[in-house]
Write a protein that binds this DNA or RNA. Structure first.
Length: 1164
RNA sequence: GCCGGUGUGGCGAAAUGGCAGACGCACGGGACUUAAAAUCCCGGGACCGUAAAACGUCGUGUGGGUUCGAGUCCCACCACCGGCACCA
């Protein structure tokens, strides 16, 4: 585009960016920091010159963007999508009176810089710094309100000093299953055989352990001490393993399982092979249960939570031991057992053979001489297959018989033992019992190799073929000499058989996870070195005083010829004077991004990774002022409306909520109510269960529809055996009946609510309480989340909030933290209030960071168990052709080009206007022009045309002085200090309402369209009341901050008290009546001006239009008084002109009047 | 195969169970201009009508259902996108 600019954004944008930088406008203040008197934040909150603590500061709002890797390619239009969204919210929250933390930094370790170094010899730091400079320049050009004083980079030694420190915390800890948390390794108790100690070794133990392993003095070299060390090291959260790893020869490094996609490296798509290597591992599996359960306490999208759940992959089942009956070993050695894991112990009677993974350690021992050759061949065959081949060629099952047999413990049947590669060594025990009748894979295998298939489960529908039936049913053919489960339902059968196995010592109930421990070392140069040294074959932690461990300078960044990591080249660095040697692996890129959000809180702290009171302020939520149960009580009454409304919007009718046991008890005793909790998720499990339970006849009578009733819930397996309680809980505000069913099961409570209107079932709300960790942060965060959303929902739905007992809820919103009325109803949350980023981090970064955070939480270093309370995934932006943007397709949009043509404000606006944040949407540069034109209209709403023409002529004549001339542009003479007309007030307040609600709901696109409507309506006004435009600027400011600042400064130049005092009064006519400006003073920065309050009174009209329907079809529109009675509306509707032909000759059966909405006449 | 998400004009999209298509793009017509750009005004779901309208019928992936009324709720499908996948 080459036409004239809509407005001089090229002058305005740099001007304000420089001004914000100079004034540090967006600095966020920590508790205990002295606030400069002139800073607008201090002025807004009456803290000028003070040094407020956490209690005096306004409520915090921590809004975070995902950590960018500064690549050489520069910014991409996808980056600013999330950044713009967070920036708009940061600015909005600032206006609402929050202390907003909105930081940015660099995840700057990374492979590209290292590969460039390998090729050219240029130090990766150099490349990294150049890239950061580019990224920062591009990001700053967009006018984001980041607090740049907190900028950080993972490659900065002052940053990775603390990354290494956290590693040492992990290294020096173990997971105590009794307390269910990470603890210092010093709390580890040795087993009895290591406990019988002499004086010397006891001393040795206390002296080395008491200092958290920081002490490198030589241990007493007794055998006992050696064994103790081995024991300790085997339980650390960071440990060394010799297991096979994913080695990528091309990249010269190992990769974590998650970094390998279809047998190729995620980065570069290079082949990956398995190879045994000594590696550092982090024991993330110890946290699997917590990582899974705590998903219920945070506000993430269902799909993201589901991805994490799938990744963790919890499955409940039993381990069962099978005795080997005959094998290739001598009889004495044959007395071995094979342990299998199964989720279906109820199918044990159908186990007709066993399968070991080819890598299973018993394979060689049990293979009979006749089969040995075949087994060896098959093992070789399986070993040559890469992971890729194993999955892609999965169509055909392969395997060989070992010649050995095992005994099925339930019926003493002799069953053959096979090996096959469809059984993975890495999952469960590496061995299975095969039940071909009820497992798809076993069925295929058995069919191919002609193994017997025995039915043990009867499908509920007799027409269903039992062969390959894998769902729940009824056990059949399941009676042995000692145990029978025939006739039992699948859940009952599982329970009974497992109990029997346990009693006989043949097996036990077990939980398995797909999640593996985290492979934490990489053979790279450009990463954090481990703060670890090796001596006499043992690893030791370096003391904190040795941090940061810097990578040594190198001439060559390649791995060594013998396959050692690049760091091994630095002999002087590796070999220490005391004879110990340094660890030469480095940490993976994920390490730095696991905790960066904590460093932002206190980025310059040289003594600690983050000051703990600072951490509490930004991450802690407001645990103290909220007596737990009381707040929950207050939410109680509102929960139904919320769940119902949200369920309706999400096209769902079921909702689950979870709540901690202690809270529930408090609430119950305080109110007598049973239900409380956080709206959680829809559970398809319940729906499926209900479907399965019903017979065909029943389903038929419902003509394909299955009303999921509360009664159905009572038949969930968890509930079956409990006594029930059914009661009428009351009515909704609409007068609909709410019926509750409550069940007490083993200390947990299931509550179901149903809502009926006549015979229609409108909704089922299920509040399903189960045991939850009773961490205070969880409860409070859950509460505030519920509260805010409820409040909004109630407003949206025009519901009156149900009254609640003030003595129960008073602390919540009248505490000092909420003294600013602007922040009322928007309470802070524990952890990060909002985290925005792409889905690509769904499992890696988010799972790792949660893990580190939980370790730090258990060790008492941070105050919440979860780091990211609310997380939103932005949708991908596609190219203009609807394809993914990529260099090869040539459809990549460079933000720099857009900025040059349309400016940052238009770019920001377009990024948000494209559609909902979470959606995938194609870029369309033409669309930028639409929002750009809108900004032009806003500009013309304010400025005097003649002076702008003059400005342009001057610029053309002397382009170098353009910035100076900007001041010559005058305010439009139509802007006056007069009272607004009712119509104008209506226009403005409709806009305030929509923008406010949409920002709370992250609906940026519709907020922008509301502002467009305002501009379109305001443009023709002959007189523009300054108060209108002023408030509109505050609304626009989060979206288009540069333009808003410029116009604001022009407004204040003319209308501020000081200007008036100087009686310049240019272009201002006599004021009819001064408009009341009840907002902040002109002297306060626009960025800190209070958000305009919405006044519904201005939207009220005397008469309203009401559509008239006849039999549900629109026939006419009538105009009636806004307060017209039902009867009046009915009368008017029957008289409606255009409706007459549809009413003539018919009998009016019924008239439905929806107040202020519509009238529908039913005729026959 | 399993899990999650999404289907509405030529396009991006909007609609607490209550006037489908707000807002914007593209397009068409007009005003201004020597002209173009910019700007401003008007018009655009389909069909049937008509000089043009009005009126009418149909219309939110498909087929059913609930309801006075369904894009929205329920059931069964279909398509596309994303994730996981011999996980026992």
């Amino acid at each position: 585009m080459s036409q004239r600019r809509q407005y001089p954004f090229h002058l305005i944008e740099p001007k304000w960016q420089a001004a914000w930088d100079a004034a540090q406008t967006f600095r966020a203040w920590n508790p205990g920091e002295a606030l400069p008197a002139e800073h607008p934040f201090a002025q807004r909150h009456g803290l000028a010159g003070k040094t407020p603590g956490a209690a005096e500061l306004p409520p915090k709002f921590y809004i975070l963007d995902m950590f960018p890797y500064p690549s050489g390619a520069g910014l991409h239009v996808g980056h600013p999508e999330g950044y713009t969204a967070t920036d708009i919210l940061a600015r909005y929250r600032r206006a609402r009176g929050f202390n907003v933390l909105h930081p940015m930094g660099w995840d700057s370790f990374g492979l590209p810089a290292e590969q460039y170094a390998v090729k050219t010899g240029q130090h990766p730091r150099k490349t990294t710094e150049t890239n950061i400079t580019t990224f920062k320049r591009q990001i700053k050009a967009l006018g984001f309100s980041y607090d740049w004083s907190r900028e950080l980079a993972t490659t900065d030694p002052e940053y990775f000093r603390w990354t290494q420190w956290i590693f040492l915390q992990i290294y020096s800890s173990w997971f105590n299953p009794e307390t269910n948390r990470a603890e210092p390794i010093s709390t580890l108790k040795y087993p009895p055989e290591l406990e019988n100690v002499g004086q010397a070794s006891r001393l040795s133990q206390t002296s080395s352990e008491g200092k958290g392993d920081g002490d490198r003095r030589d241990a007493c070299p007794t055998d006992l001490e050696e064994r103790r060390r081995a024991y300790r090291d085997s339980l650390r959260l960071a440990y060394v393993s010799e297991a096979p790893v994913n080695w990528c020869p091309e990249l010269g490094t190992v990769l974590a399982n998650e970094e390998v996609i279809d047998g190729k490296s995620e980065v570069g798509d290079f082949p990956v092979i398995r190879r045994p290597m000594r590696q550092w591992m982090l024991r993330i599996t110890a946290f699997a249960e917590k990582l899974l359960n705590d998903l219920d306490t945070i506000d993430w999208s269902d799909s993201l939570k589901e991805m994490q759940r799938n990744w963790i992959g919890r499955s409940e089942g039993a381990e069962v031991d099978f005795q080997i009956a005959e094998c290739g070993m001598r009889n004495a050695e044959c007395d071995q057992r094979i342990r299998v894991f199964t989720t279906r112990p109820d199918t044990l009677f159908g186990a007709t053979y066993m399968v070991l993974s080819p890598e299973h350690k018993l394979v060689d021992k049990i293979a009979t001489p006749e089969q040995r050759k075949a087994v060896e061949d098959y093992k070789a065959f399986a070993a040559t297959k890469s992971d890729l081949e194993r999955t892609e060629l999965a169509k055909e099952k392969t395997g060989v018989f070992t010649g050995a047999y095992a005994i099925n413990p339930v019926n003493s049947e002799r069953i053959p033992i096979w090996i096959a590669d469809y059984v993975l060594i890495s999952y469960g025990t590496g061995a299975i019992m095969a039940v071909p009748a009820h497992d798809t894979r076993d069925f295929e295998f058995a069919t191919k190799f002609n193994l017997p298939i025995v039915q043990v489960v009867q499908p509920p529908d007799p027409k269903t073929d039992w062969r390959g039936f894998v769902d729940d049913g009824t056990s059949v053919n399941s009676t042995g000499p000692e145990i029978s489960i025939t006739g039992l339902s699948t859940p009952e059968a599982k329970q009974k058989i497992t109990a029997w196995l346990e009693s006989k010592g043949l097996g036990k109930k077990t939980i398995n996870y797909k999640l593996r421990d985290w492979l934490f070392s990489r053979q790279r140069y450009w990463g954090e070195p481990f703060p670890i040294v090796w001596k006499d074959g043992h690893h030791q932690a370096l003391p904190e005083s040795a941090l940061p461990v810097l990578p040594p300078p190198l001439d060559d960044y390649k791995p060594t010829a013998d396959g050692q990591p690049p760091l091994a080249r630095a002999k002087d660095w590796v070999n220490l004077p005391d004879g110990s040697t340094r660890e030469t692996n480095t940490m993976p890129q994920w390490a730095g991004s696991c905790w960066y959000y904590l460093r932002y809180l206190d980025a310059k702290n040289g003594r600690r990774f983050v000051n703990s009171s600072t951490e509490k302020y930004w991450m802690g939520g407001y645990a103290a002022p909220f007596p737990k149960g009381q707040v929950w009580c207050k939410e109680m009454r509102e929960l139904f409306e919320y769940a119902y409304a949200r369920g309706a919007r999400k096209r769902r009718r079921l909702a689950f909520a979870y709540v901690g046991a202690s809270q529930a008890e408090q609430i119950k005793s305080a109110t007598g109510l049973e239900t409380c909790g956080m709206f959680h998720t829809i559970d398809s499990y319940a729906i499926n269960h209900v479907r399965k339970r019903h017979s065909d006849e029943y389903l038929e009578t419902k003509r394909g529809q299955i009303p999921v009733s509360a009664e159905d819930y009572l038949l969930l397996p968890e509930v079956v055996t409990a006594p029930d309680r059914i009661e009428h809980l009351g009515k909704t505000h609409q007068g609909l009946d709410v019926i509750g069913f409550a069940k007490q099961i083993n200390g947990t409570l299931l509550v179901v609510e149903e809502v009926h209107a006549g015979r229609n079932l409108l909704a089922v709300v299920t509040l399903y309480k189960r045991k939850m960790p009773a961490a205070s942060g969880v409860a409070i965060g859950t509460c505030s989340f519920t509260s805010e959303t409820l409040r909004r929902t109630a407003i949206n739905y025009n519901h009156e909030l149900p009254p609640h007992k003030p003595e129960l809820s008073a602390p919540a919103f009248d505490s000092p933290e909420f003294r600013d009325s602007q922040t009322r109803g928007m309470s802070p949350t524990p952890g990060i209030d909002l985290y925005v980023g792409g889905t690509e981090h769904a499992v890696l970064h988010l799972l790792y960071a949660r893990f580190w955070h939980k370790v730090l939480y258990d060790l008492g270093h941070v105050s919440t168990p979860e780091p990211f309370f609310k997380l939103v995934n932005q949708g991908l932006i596609l190219g203009e052709d609807g394809q993914k943007m990529s260099k090869s397709r040539g459809n990549v949009i460079n933000p720099d080009d857009i900025l040059k043509d349309y400016g940052a404000d238009a770019f920001r606006l377009y990024e948000m206007f494209m559609g909902p944040l979470e959606m995938v949407k194609p870029w369309n540069t033409k669309g930028v022009e639409g929002v750009y034109r809108f900004l032009g209209r806003v500009w013309r709403l304010f400025v005097d045309e003649a002076s702008e023409t003059e400005f342009e002529q001057n610029c053309a004549a002397q382009p170098e002085r353009a910035a100076e001339f900007l001041a010559q542009i005058k305010l439009s003479p139509a802007i006056k200090d007069v009272a607004a007309t009712p119509a104008q007030l209506k226009t403005l307040h409709a806009c305030i309402k929509k923008v406010t609600e949409d920002l709370d709901g992250l609906r940026f696109n519709t907020a922008i369209s509301a502002m467009m409507v305002f501009a379109n309506e305001a443009l023709p006004w002959e007189t523009k009341p300054v108060a209108m435009l002023r408030e509109f600027m505050i609304l626009l400011q989060p979206f288009a901050p540069h333009l808003a600042e410029e116009l604001w400064s022009k407004l204040s130049g003319v209308f501020s008290a000081e200007s008036k005092a100087q009686s310049r009064k240019p272009n201002v006519g006599p004021a009819d009546a001064p408009a009341t400006l009840d907002l902040g003073p002109w002297t306060l920065d626009l960025a800190y001006q209070p958000w305009p309050p919405f006044n519904p009174a201005f939207l009220v009209e005397d008469t309203i239009e009401i559509p008239v329907q006849v039999n549900g079809k629109l026939r006419d529109v009538i105009r009636v008084a806004a307060n017209a009675s039902q009867a009046e509306i009915e009368t008017a509707a029957l008289k409606a002109e255009k409706a007459q032909q549809f009413l003539a000759g018919k009998t009016v059966k019924k008239i439905i009047v929806v107040p202020k909405k519509l009238v529908n006449v039913v005729v026959v």
